[in-house]
Design a protein around this nucleic acid. Structure first.
Lengths: 204, 204
DNA sequence: TAAGGATGTTAGTAGATACTAACATCCTTA
DNA sequence: TAAGGATGTTAGTATCTACTAACATCCTTA
């Protein structure tokens, strides 16, 4: 369906648009980076806007949150949280260029069907369901919505943070950060004074 | 030093550049939004690039982290963390347009003197010093650098998250999120099995 | 070999954009 | 009132950019 030529053009435009934003990239530039003539670009995509939109739809990676929550949860907040964070981080990484592109371009605010809004919105719902269940069972206390928002915020921040200033991490790896974060969030339920029962962690 | 006319132009350009990025904004547009003629704009700032840079330098708000860490800390992780988060959030809010502008424009990666890198970099150093001290006194366990990075990531994420999808918060306020976050991060030291002494929280 | 499709090349157009020159007008202040 | 500085207006230039037309060339395949 997508020819080799089209793919070259789409890949170049993804890279350039994500690096510079829509307006700052010229069709000539995209053609140059694709290794094709500008004419070929217009023959395949008619106009710049259409190229942009085709590229956008082509490269979005949809997350696998539903399967994660339905199949991989163990009712252990720490372990579950690590899986959730890793899954979200992976999706953020895969969509990195699309996300950057969206940040660069005009209205990155309140376009609800754009991945920047849609994906965390979906995850928020699933997270709230999960935390509600855990709360019923006594493994989680505190407000469910705030808990969900904080997890989302942390993950998005971690991703952006690594993107913006890589040198600030200095060897510290993301997985260690997540492990540390998950441990701190879950330790509350291990604490007698917090009111919840112990997690299943120490069962083994 | 900055005349009323210049201020109108600077404010309009801050708003427009932060909304659309450098390339997508025209000098005519800025003039229109400033309520002056395009000619006046060039008379004051010579060229678009210079206007942009002047605006950038004019509107950065430097953080008050140093005073915060030197004067306001109480050696109570939860209380201190809330103050730190609030201070950082306030600075992020004040620099919101500058940050958005930087996200929109080309190289928001690895420009170390830009506020997007410089400010968290400074805060990271101060946070690590603080956590080291707290660790010595037994109020904090776990890796100091990871702890600092996680706090930075959480805050940046919370800020970005509110910016990108406000509707996801649905009445939940930032302060409540921070309070919840700070409580969870500090509860570890209240937990006997975690090895640390109790915080000063319950002293009163 | 013949044909057809994809691609390159060249030249060009229409509109936008950053920026300038020259002159007119307004407002303040001495 | 006179003068000077700031501003507006108008016209214009050079450059860039998205996009088109026409023709040439290459590659595959029947």
């Amino acid at each position: 369906m997508i020819s080799a030529t089209e793919q070259k053009i789409l890949e170049a435009s993804l890279l350039l648009f994500s690096q510079k934003g829509y307006d700052a990239v010229t069709t000539k530039e995209i053609a140059l980076h694709s290794g094709v003539s500008e004419m070929t670009l217009f023959r395949h995509f008619a106009c710049k806007r259409n190229l942009f939109e085709t590229m956008f739809e082509t490269y979005i990676v949809n997350p696998q949150f539903k399967a994660l929550f339905e199949q991989q949860m163990e009712e252990n907040i720490e372990k579950d949280l690590i899986k959730i964070c890793q899954c979200y981080q992976e999706n953020l990484r895969k969509n990195q260029k699309i996300i950057m592109l969206q940040l660069r371009n005009q209205d990155f605010i309140s376009i609800s069907d754009a991945p920047l809004c849609r994906i965390p919105s979906e995850l928020k719902r699933l997270l709230m369901d999960y935390l509600s269940k855990m709360k019923e069972k006594g493994y989680f206390i505190a407000d469910v919505e705030i808990g969900a928002v904080n997890i989302l915020a942390y993950n998005f921040g971690l991703f952006m943070f690594c993107l913006v200033n890589k040198q600030l991490l200095s060897g510290t790896e993301i997985d260690k950060c997540i492990a540390d974060y998950a441990k701190k969030l879950s330790v509350q339920s291990q604490c007698p004074m917090a009111g919840g029962p112990r997690t299943t962690m120490e069962e083994k």
